[in-house]
Design a protein around this nucleic acid. Structure first.
Lengths: 199, 199, 199, 199
DNA sequence: TGAGTTAGAATGGCACCACCCGTC
DNA sequence: GACGGGTGGTGCCATTCTAACTCA
């Protein structure tokens, strides 16, 4: 399975999503994470820690490792052009578009991919990330907005928790982090993964 | 005075900073905000509301309006190349590099602009934005990290408050927002402005 | 079902009524709002916000979308001529004539549509809008006046509340507005809708 | 002196303003009020009472009475086209555009007459009418909005008071009405008049 | 080392108060 | 002059999360 993550704005958890989707798929079989971000965020994340179970390579190395992995996750550079989107969709089994529930991110998302709404939800889906907890209603409001606008949306969403910060800092998967809510954080991405597998 | 905002990662408050610095300078004289972001975030922010006191134009219109304004704020596109940075610095009186106190943002910042540390703090400065409130220590830790690494840093920093979300949603300056903490949010940017004026 | 709103004087809540009747009908099935007002008030209202659940189109587009919607609400231009009224009635299942309980509005209404009183209340009805709260008696007096004059009148009436202002400002249905009395405001239009359904 | 009132939306106090400006000018010399509104609101207002000190005629009679009056006030029909505006301005000494401080009225006003902002404030001015009293801030906010947008605005504004309703009901000038606040209501229009005379 | 507890901060909801107007 | 109602402002409380502390 090939999963690609893309975003029109930084800071929405694109790299975090790519890494944890790779960790999820690794449970099922050997997985390759292709770091296409010019900042090399995923690679540097990986190098801070003891390494992940899955392999992280740059875009240039992707061809070489190509088909020796059961699953591939591709973390693309930010701000794809509208024309690139179709290419991204064609190049994978599922394109994940993470977005935070704030105005600027939603605005950039909706402004750019309105034309994609004709595609089926099998090909791409929007994932709400960094959702603040109650009593804030950002998540619910953003969800309603996106559904009204006709975007295919994951039922699961990713909470905003410090465990993700610690994971990035320590070079770990969030499930391995020493934090009281690490399990909860990981369960969010588990839900996303199961939602993908169950269609 | 010409102030430019740039960032190596989205979602760090680059546009929010540009808009509020323009609002600050407008207090002193007519100010022009040049929206150089391909997402046109500042322009769209402006259009959601009743308009700002300062004028917002695209990069293409910038030359035309050029010198009829006392102050100019330039909101650049995300992810400048390292070579562009010197150009950005040369093209303004002060380059503001906003960053959130999380690993990925700090990582991208420090990785890219280490060469700029030879420049004086008159020419560019880093601004910590979206700083979580106590008991989280992200702000203090990031501050210590940046100071240790030798970056010129604003003493002032911008809190993470919903008032900024409401401002973006309503197309207003945060000071005009109907929110309990709107005054506090605006005072953060006021501090930045005064820090600039006082050298 | 096709509902049309018309008024002989602006500022009586014609557009507000059209939008909220569309929101009411949308609960039952896909609804189309045809914005026939030259000021494009409904369209501009819609565009200020994140969009409504129902679709808003101009009069020119109405034919195209025509029959793919279960319900249609038509917001006509102000000040129809007396002869146009019969056409308006013929072109819909129910013609709603909103009016505020002030002399000038009532005067314009009664002066113009006296000839319609021969029609049954199945075809058109007057809706009192922007009714001030007690101790003002404007609503009761206007109601008595209209009943005496033989006009079919909705038992329900719409209060004058700032929530409606906020809804117009934010591009939302009044039920979604952040206001203490938003629920009350919406219940007024709910009553109108139920009164229509119950004959 | 010739004063014309026009509005892009009904219910903003256009007729009320015309009548009271006529009453104000009558203090200085014989005044004619030309009722150009198809609803004949001013004429009907006049006939409900014992008559005004100034004369009210229809548009068709205007030419006949033409120059035998020192002052003329013209109450035009609602919703002038943009092209008509220049004609309206040319046909009088001062064009008054009354507007209520609500979104829909302000929207219609600003949408239509942006092109007039190049004219001097000697030729037309916007008058805020039906301004709610404290603690509501509608008036102040609308004023700030209009000033920011560059419209010439009367410093004076007309409060929303029942005295105006009673005046319309009884066919009187608001100063003659039996109401506790009638004097206050009249003083609002007095301020407008004096503002006109003092330039 | 791990679990439970407490303090601090921000948000959202609710209640209370002051102000103003209109009616009696 | 008293009363009722809506609006805006302020203050209080419950919720949630984080960090620090305590205890086993």
């Amino acid at each position: 399975m090939i999963i690609t993550t893309a975003a029109f704005k930084g800071g929405v958890g694109k790299t975090t999503t790519a890494i944890h989707m790779a960790a999820f798929l690794q449970q099922d079989g050997d997985t390759l994470l292709v770091d296409g971000d010019p900042n090399r965020s995923a690679t540097r994340w990986s190098k801070r820690g003891a390494g992940f179970l899955f392999k992280v390579v740059s875009e240039q190395q992707a061809a070489k490792y190509g088909r020796s992995f059961k699953h591939i996750v591709i973390d693309t550079q930010a701000r794809p052009e509208r024309e690139d989107l179709q290419d991204l969709v064609d190049g994978c089994d599922l394109l994940i578009l993470p977005t935070t529930p704030d105005v600027l991110s939603l605005d950039a998302l909706m402004q750019t991919v309105n034309l994609m709404k004709v595609l089926g939800s099998q090909q791409y889906r929007v994932l709400l990330t960094r959702v603040p907890s109650a009593p804030r209603k950002d998540g619910a409001e953003a969800r309603e907005l996106l559904v009204t606008a006709g975007f295919p949306l994951f039922k699961a969403q990713i909470r905003e928790l410090v465990a993700f910060q610690k994971a990035a800092l320590d070079g770990l998967i969030v499930a391995q982090v020493n934090d009281r809510r690490a399990k909860i954080a990981w369960s969010d991405y588990l839900s996303v993964g199961q939602e993908i597998l169950n269609g």
